[in-house]
Design a protein around this nucleic acid. Sequence first.
DNA 1: TTTGCCGGGCC
DNA 2: GGCCCGGCAAA
Length: 464
Amino acid sequence: MEPDLLPSFLRGLSDTASVYLQMKWPLLDVQAGSLQSRQALKDARSPSPAHIVSNKVPVVQHPHHVHPLTPLITYSNEHFTPGNPPPHLPADVDPKTGIPRPPHPPDISPYYPLSPGTVGQIPHPLGWLVPQQGQPVYPITTGGFRHPYPTALTVNASMSRFPPHMVPPHHSLHTTGIPHPAIVTPTVKQESSQSDVGSLHSSKHQDSKKEEEKKKPHIKKPLNAFMLYMKEMRAKVVAECTLKESAAINQILGRRVGNKGQAQGKKKKRKRDKQPGETNEHSECFLNPCLSLPPITDANTPKKCRALFGLDRQSLWCKPCRRKKKCVRYIQGEGSCVSPPSSDGSLLDSPPSSPAMLASPSRDSKPQTEQTQPLSLSLKPDPLAHLVMMPPPSSLVLAESAASKPGALPAASCPNGALDHPPAALPPAAAASLAQPSTSSLHSHSSLAGTQPQPLSLVTKSLE
DNA sequence: TTTGCCGGGCC
DNA sequence: GGCCCGGCAAA
Ligand SMILES: [Zn+2]
């Protein structure tokens, strides 16, 4: 783990992240940042965003969640030494309750200091990011201080165990004027503030309000998994393909990461402004075994998470629901498939469907993929490339990439096409976890271990 | 140009 | 209550 391998984004990340963390999770922040950085070093070699630390949440994700974009928080990783599979998280306290957890039952990943409910729904294939307690992760707002990204999180939510006075004065962070990359003070011209007159003819009140907001330091949004991934990979792509246009690069990376074949039942909006109605349904279906079943809907009253759990149990909602998006509980196998939301929200107990199933096919498809794709993996910067396994419906992916907008893509620049391959990513475990939400993550881990290559993190180690 | 995430606001 | 849609993040 050479230092230089440390993805730049990680550095920046800790930076940015720390801001957010400090603000939102004052107690986790710095420490976490350093930890993740350290861990990052370890996994840095892999371009896969898998180990990217989610800058947004102080959540610990399981290392084998390796979707290329899976942003992981590896704080806990620090506890496991290379060579040894993570036994269990030593210090694990429920972030929410603050109650120390007893040894975890096998079915619950110790790496998820999340509320049980959360665990149950995380894993939506799309949800590379582990949803946290359903709370916004932006800077926490204390008192009347308002950030551009105010959060509903109340101190007690995650910090209840700490006395109020112990909470770091995060707000001072930028109030003090300490420069931080993540915080950009809008060059709000004083003109505006001075020229009240000017805004006078407008709507004064509203206007002034906006002005005020403008003046506030703008806290940049944390980079999401994809962004981090891009940041990291862009250079590689540029180097290998001599591409330099962001658009082109992004496109490539987007493909690599996207359509992993795995459910990916989403991609609704993008891809050329899709129409809400025309998309996804079928694609999801065929990817998800569960889908083949009648939409659990059952009864016609497919209660959505919100209605099901209520606002107070938002942590139990499926990710989309939290985002106010289409509920996937009944399609992704996320909830129903995995476990019909029981009234009490005991999602986590629900047994996963069949991670292995998904994973196996994937493996098989790999060889095929390679054949189909003349382009070699050799170029891939990732040592784990050989472990890469394409998703079952890889054909689709290939087709797409191969046939991708003619000329539109800078493919030409990349003769080897290596870039079109998903990053080392999506190792089996990842696939499994992707397909399999939550609880299973741990399971899949172990079960998969025998069948397939180990989780990325482990692989890396062994390689070393 | 890419994806993920957020939240306003429509239905 | 469900979720569409625009906007933002990096380069
Ligand atoms: Zn839902």
